[in-house]
């Protein structure tokens, strides 16, 4: 019994370490192809990156706006209710502004993109793996990491900060829609006060996180896709795993940021 449990633990540990190593390798290779690929005749196509940027970023704009607007209104309601008890309603604006720019804007975007694009990466690469398309690319001398992973990573690195910025703006407007009237202010005044209270550091913290989240979501999605085995069922499992693990990864990373 004990030896079987130890055996399992050992195997899991080895495969987890191998997973981290594989992820690191995909990251390094993708960055290598993005930076040096062109000089070595192994370029990553602009058209592939642009296509991924559209799928990952532009197509996500409506849903990002909807969710961040909702979260903005919700935060305003909660903060006003909570701070009113202490008679500290004037602190509402700064509390909302900081929590959105530092935390909620990027977290909402991250979770949304993990669910949307992390799973899409895993499903796309996974089904290509199952139908031998990844093998076909490899024997044609087209590195699958360069062809499939690098454009996704580049697109995510650009679009995640953009979407995060968008989410920040929309969420703050959303909070203003509720908090403005409650504080006897026009929306314009509310936004102006918010702009005065936000420091560049707040925005940068959110954007810095968004870059880390972009890397995590892409790597988890792409690596689970490449490791798919066992047909359509395997693709399904990989998709689920990609979403669960990328959300877990970004929340853990978020906590690490908060400590530092």
């Amino acid at each position: 019994m004990v030896s079987a449990a130890l055996d399992r633990l050992g195997r899991r540990t080895v495969s987890t370490v191998a997973g981290f190593g594989y992820g690191a390798m995909v990251l390094v290779e993708s960055l290598f192809f993005l930076v040096f690929g062109r000089a070595r005749g192994q370029r990553v196509r602009w058209s592939a990156i642009a296509e991924q940027m559209r799928v990952v970023g532009i197509d996500a704009i409506p849903i990002v706006c909807l969710l961040s607007l909702t979260v903005g209104v919700m935060l305003a309601i909660q903060f006003i209710a909570a701070l009113r008890e202490f008679g500290a309603e004037t602190g509402v604006i700064i509390a909302i502004a900081k929590s959105i720019t530092r935390e909620f804007g990027v977290l909402i975007t991250g979770i949304l993109i993990a669910g949307r694009s992390g799973s899409a990466f895993a499903a796309r690469i996974g089904s290509m793996n199952v139908s031998q398309e990844v093998d076909a690319l490899a024997v044609m001398g087209v590195d699958p990491v360069r062809y499939l992973a690098a454009p996704a990573l580049a697109a995510m690195l650009v679009m995640m900060p953009c979407l995060t910025l968008l989410a920040d703006v929309v969420a703050i407007v959303g909070s203003g829609l509720y908090a403005g009237p409650m504080l006897d202010m026009s929306l314009y005044n509310y936004l102006q006060q918010t702009l005065e209270l936000i420091k560049p550091r707040d925005l940068l913290e959110g954007l810095g996180k968004s870059v880390v989240f972009a890397v995590l979501i892409t790597l988890v999605g792409v690596c689970t896709g490449f490791s798919v085995q066992g047909g359509a069922e395997g693709v399904g499992r990989a998709t689920t795993r990609a979403v669960v693990w990328s959300i877990t990864a970004i929340i853990l990373a978020d906590m690490a940021f908060s400590f530092s």
Partner: peptide, 29 residues
């Protein structure tokens, strides 16, 4: 790999590309 060609059992055409783009892929790369 530039000197060998492989035709897989299931074809392994890239599903997101049409026939011509599939065939041109090695040339473009």
């Amino acid at each position: 790999r530039r000197q060998i060609g492989v035709s897989f059992q299931g074809g392994a055409l890239i599903t997101s590309l049409d026939v011509e783009d599939n065939v041109s892929l090695p040339l473009r790369e």
